[in-house]
């Protein structure tokens, strides 16, 4: 039975095996749905020369941005990185390499990686700098770019609920990249808000089946909001 008990009780156990030079794929969109405690653990471990794949790179002092503070990231693969000054500084000084990837292509590269598809053709980016150096092909009269899949040594995600089998359910738009990321790691670690008993999650409502997940840890999340926008309440 222990073989299917994926719950670990410490962040040391959760990220055990992470080494310098590895590739880490992280779920999240901006600061929404990021595995805050697992990122903090990578900072604590001081692992260096990482290639990090994530839609964004956090902000100064929060999210993946904290890994820039001690220059732990060698290369960042992302679709949009404009939210932190430290990122800009390291990019301009040449300390940090960045590979900008269209958001949908990034999502599909990770999905393909987890699904055993080595590359795919997409019209996205044809005729733009994104296609430079890549194979292109005309199919049914339209031009496409061959994009290779992405897999990682580690995949880190945040989920709402999990059981000890590693089945995951995400909450609202905190889902974002997390389901694909969960499929694409040799070791996938899920940091979750709540661990429930097997059977409590309705089988047909599970977003990520436990087969993709090796470790589950219960986290405590700050859930920082990047752009808080409100409207006046009705009748106010």
């Amino acid at each position: 039975m222990a073989g299917f008990n994926k719950v670990v009780s410490s962040y040391d156990e959760a990220m055990a095996g992470l080494e310098n030079g590895m590739t880490v794929i992280a779920g999240g969109f901006g600061l929404c749905g990021i595995p805050e405690g697992l990122i903090a653990q990578i900072k604590t471990m001081g692992t260096r020369d990482l290639t990090v794949v994530s839609n964004n790179c956090g902000v100064d002092g929060f999210g993946l941005g904290v890994l820039l503070e001690d220059r732990q990231i060698k290369k960042m693969v992302a679709s949009y990185v404009g939210e932190n000054a430290l990122f800009e500084k390291q990019l301009l000084s040449g300390e940090l390499e960045v590979e900008l990837t269209p958001q949908g292509t990034l999502a599909e590269k990770i999905r393909a990686g987890g699904a055993g598809i080595p590359a795919f053709f997409t019209a996205t980016g044809y005729g733009t700098p994104v296609a430079e150096g890549k194979e292109t092909r005309e199919i049914n009269g339209r031009n496409y770019v061959l994009e290779p899949a992405i897999t990682g040594d580690f995949a880190i995600v945040r989920a709402w609920k999990a059981d000890r089998y590693g089945n995951l359910v995400f909450r609202h738009t905190a889902m974002n990249f997390n389901p694909m990321v969960a499929t694409a790691g040799k070791i996938t670690v899920a940091e979750v808000e709540e661990i429930v008993e097997p059977g409590e999650l309705e089988p047909s409502q599970i977003h990520t089946p436990g087969i993709y997940v090796q470790r589950v840890i219960k986290g405590n999340f700050e859930k920082r909001i990047e752009r808080r926008m409100v409207r006046q309440g009705e009748g106010a």
Binding site: A78, S79, Y80, V81, G82, L100, P102, Q103, G104, T105, T124, G125, T128, V130
Partner: peptide, 9 residues
Amino acid sequence: VKGMGGAMD
């Protein structure tokens, strides 16, 4: 250059 986000897609 901050990135293309989802615009190319």
